[in-house]
Simulated scan of single mutants.
Amino acid sequence: MEKSRLIQQLEFIKEIDKLKYIQRRTRLLNSDRHENDAEHSWHLAMMTIVLAEHSNKPIDVLKVLKMVLIHDIVEIDAGDTFIYDTAKSHDNTDEELIAAKRIFGMLPDEQAAEFIAIWTEFEEGISDEAKFARSMDRLEPLLQNTSNDGGTWREFDVPYERVYDKKKVIKNGSESIWRYAEELIDKSVEMGMLKKIE
């Protein structure tokens, strides 16, 4: 017997509860507790609503919200890859695409296709919406690390140059937010939270 549309959707809803168990390396602002992927996605959604006016180009906010809420769901299967990992590339999209097809594939066909398309658009980072969504994704951990005396930068001895290189994507979505982020990064060097390679 074919599953009803509602049952498919509810099974997906139950499956994505697993996102709450995926721990990230970053810690909550001013905290020792690690953030989970669901908290990260919620925070990006709120940041999008509040900061959308700072986008370089007019954006479809609902589309950006969909991107930031679903972009890490693939980590239920693929796991979270630390952005500064030197052994494994953060762009593990082959592994993540398999996860996207399985997890989003639980939904009715047209919803599954929409979610995979939105996830792919975020990963490619070409559209104005994807650029802004990726800006939010890179800004949040920056705010966390600067609130935690360097956080994961200190813990994993991440140099200024790698942080700057990973964060400069913020500029693609918002020049004004990038100026603020750049100041935070520079201030982090001055305060000894980030070290430049000698």
Rank of each mutant, 00 (worst) to 15 (best):
K3A: 07
S4V: 11
S4P: 04
L6D: 01
Q9P: 00
F12C: 10
I13W: 01
E15G: 03
D17F: 14
K18N: 14
K18Y: 06
L19R: 13
K20Q: 15
Y21C: 14
Q23N: 09
L28E: 02
L28Q: 12
L28G: 04
N30T: 08
S31Y: 02
E35V: 13
D37P: 01
A38G: 07
H40D: 02
H43D: 00
H43Q: 10
M46N: 10
M46T: 12
M47V: 07
L51V: 12
A52K: 15
H54T: 14
H54C: 08
H54A: 06
P58G: 02
I59M: 08
V61R: 14
L62W: 02
K63F: 01
K63C: 05
V64C: 02
L65E: 02
K66A: 14
I70G: 01
I70H: 00
D72E: 05
I73Y: 00
E75A: 04
E75F: 00
I76L: 13
G79R: 10
D80I: 13
D80N: 12
D80M: 09
I83S: 08
Y84W: 06
D85R: 06
D85W: 02
K88D: 04
S89A: 13
D91V: 15
N92Q: 11
N92D: 11
N92E: 03
T93V: 14
D94Y: 03
L97Q: 12
L97D: 03
A99I: 12
A100P: 07
K101D: 03
G105P: 14
G105I: 15
L107M: 09
P108L: 09
E110V: 13
Q111K: 15
Q111S: 05
A112N: 01
A112S: 11
I116N: 03
I118Q: 02
W119A: 07
W119K: 07
T120H: 04
T120P: 00
E121Y: 00
E124Q: 12
I126W: 00
I126K: 09
S127M: 06
D128P: 06
F132E: 03
F132Q: 04
R134E: 09
S135E: 01
R138H: 08
L139K: 09
E140Y: 09
E140F: 11
E140T: 11
P141N: 02
L142K: 15
L143R: 12
N145F: 08
N145R: 11
N145M: 14
N148D: 03
G150R: 11
G150I: 06
G151Q: 06
G151N: 10
T152F: 01
T152C: 08
R154H: 03
Y160M: 13
Y160W: 05
E161F: 00
V163T: 07
Y164L: 15
D165E: 12
K166S: 04
K166A: 05
K167I: 14
K168R: 15
V169N: 04
I170S: 06
I170C: 07
K171I: 06
E175P: 02
E175Y: 06
E175W: 05
S176E: 11
I177Q: 07
I177C: 07
I177A: 08
I177N: 03
W178K: 07
W178H: 02
R179F: 01
R179D: 03
R179V: 14
R179C: 00
Y180K: 12
E182I: 06
E182R: 12
E183V: 12
L184W: 00
D186K: 11
D186V: 05
M191H: 00
G192C: 06
G192D: 01
G192Q: 07
L194V: 10
K195Q: 07
K196P: 04
K196Q: 05
I197P: 00
